[in-house]
Design a binder for these strands. Sequence first.
RNA 1: UGGGGCGUAGCCAAGUGGUAAGGCACCGGGUUUUGGUCCCGGCAUCCGUGGGUUCGAGUCCUACCGCCCCAGCCA
Length: 582
Amino acid sequence: MSHDSTEPTRTTEASADKKGNETLPAASSGNFIRDIIDEDLRTGKYAGRVATRFPPEPNGYLHIGHAKAVCLNFGIARDYPGGTCNLRFDDTNPTKEEVEYVDSIMEDIRWLGFDWEDRLYYASDYFEQMYRYAIDLIQKGKAYVCELSPDQIREHRGTLTQPGKPSPYRDRPIEENLDLFRRMRAGEFEEGSMVLRAKIDMAAANLNLRDPIMYRIVKASHHRTGDAWCIYPMYDWAHGLEDSIERITHSLCTLEFEDHRPLYDWFLVELGVYRPQQIEFARLALTYTVMSKRKLLQLVQQGLVNGWDDPRMPTLAGLRRRGYTPEAIRDFCDRIGLAKANSVVDVELLEHCLRDDLNRRAPRAMAVLNPLRVIITNYPEGQVEWLTAENNPEDAGMGSRQIPFSRVLYIEQEDFREDPPKKFFRLFPGGEIRLKHAYYITCQNVVKDPDSGRIVELHCTYDPQSRGGWTSDGRKVKGTSHWVSAAHALKAKVRLYDRLFVVPNPGEERDFLQDINPRSLEVLNDCLVEPGLAHVEPSSYYQFLRQGYFCADPVDSRPGAPVFNRTVSLKDTWAKIERAQR
RNA sequence: UGGGGCGUAGCCAAGUGGUAAGGCACCGGGUUUUGGUCCCGGCAUCCGUGGGUUCGAGUCCUACCGCCCCAGCCA
């Protein structure tokens, strides 16, 4: 991550235009949080400091919603002079957290393109300090040990419209609280037998202020502190402290923490310590997917997907394996904006960002997913021509490659129709199309299996004058198909992924599992790809001409036996026309 | 019926009293050896609703309506 101190306060990211001719300042309009930071800088509120943090709990994998927060926090640190962004694991609940998750979170943030440099922190590093703060509050008469059962605590809390009742332990002498709390730490009491509570206001309209729990007894070993502790701080007690200890200036979090803010402030004011400014924003929701960790965990645990990195998952690990690029995800996070209104972003915007990035960068290749055999009857047997194919029409710098052409080829089954519908300008009996980078061919005969009536192969003739896919007579050939040479093609497995859910808002009408798309994965085992794809790098991406963007699966692909995941299809105008014709 | 938020196009989202940016989606048209890309054009007389202030209101006041969050020893 760069911290260019000459950068202006506001984002003025340069971006190349589509043709890469020149760089123009991006129309980055900032957002209400950057407005607040600008104002704080102007008034000198934090002496010119801008310090943010990304504070995940290591209890699951990061998803695209987290990417929004990562880009926000690290993006601010990147754009403001001297700005910093800490990575801090909020590991206050040992029963749900695992090192597998901390490792994956770090990997995902790095992959997204951000760097916390030497600022890696853990809430658990502050346990001793938090404990001392708690002692301090007890000594000030602002916290007490409560022996009510969980049920009783709930009853005493009251309801949304009725005030709570004070705990009978609320006015315990300070010395007794101190003694009990020390013994809680020493492990003298059972789980659930007592908690430390802040003494605030049982009648507060904001339920968070009705003597919230600060510590509970949990006799579980922690992934970092082991068995050093048997009392663990609650999030509400810990979180503001963590931000305070790290001297964060702007604590950015999601909307649901808005009415926790008065509590964080109460703790910090009572303690008399540094107080960051919390600003809330709306979390990201996307159509056709789910984002809650609980639901994602359920999909994984019930085997409805193949792990956290299943290419259908909205996790960063899943998107990465699917073939998404960090650039596309960052662009998406820039484009969705930032506000306080709850919203659901169309997944099409994400897909647009992906296509936009991949269109510029993905090398083109030809792959026939559902092969249909074609014999070029007037092409000499045994002859092979190596034809030149550009690697990317968007970028001449990516060069070209040679592809073999011969008498027996395969084209896409979809590219031939015996009875062509209106506007179908692909191959049909008597029709002529161009084979990309090769020749014009005309369909002369359709060979069918006598029993099933299934089309077995096509007999076509080619025009030797059309080498390269062009003739000088000005003849119009509208359709262009991709193809492979039968003798040279390489067999490949291709996995076609579709949306995991069939409705825009899974779970809205019924249990979200009922909304799962039963056809979210289609595996094609007998695809034929051009020979150059024999030794693709794991995770490398390609545009399979006229079909979509695909990447070599990092886990299952083998030299000579590639496995490709469809990242996203190309936009398909023909499919739209066909749909409209019905 | 308590508290905290939020309502600008199908979906996001600018807009901070001077006459509704931009993107996605969608619909036309052009270019094209990818029905891709690219290019051009269209797409809110109106900003949840009613009233008020003002020469002038999406922006201010007011009343109402709708949606989201909060009663874990989760975060």
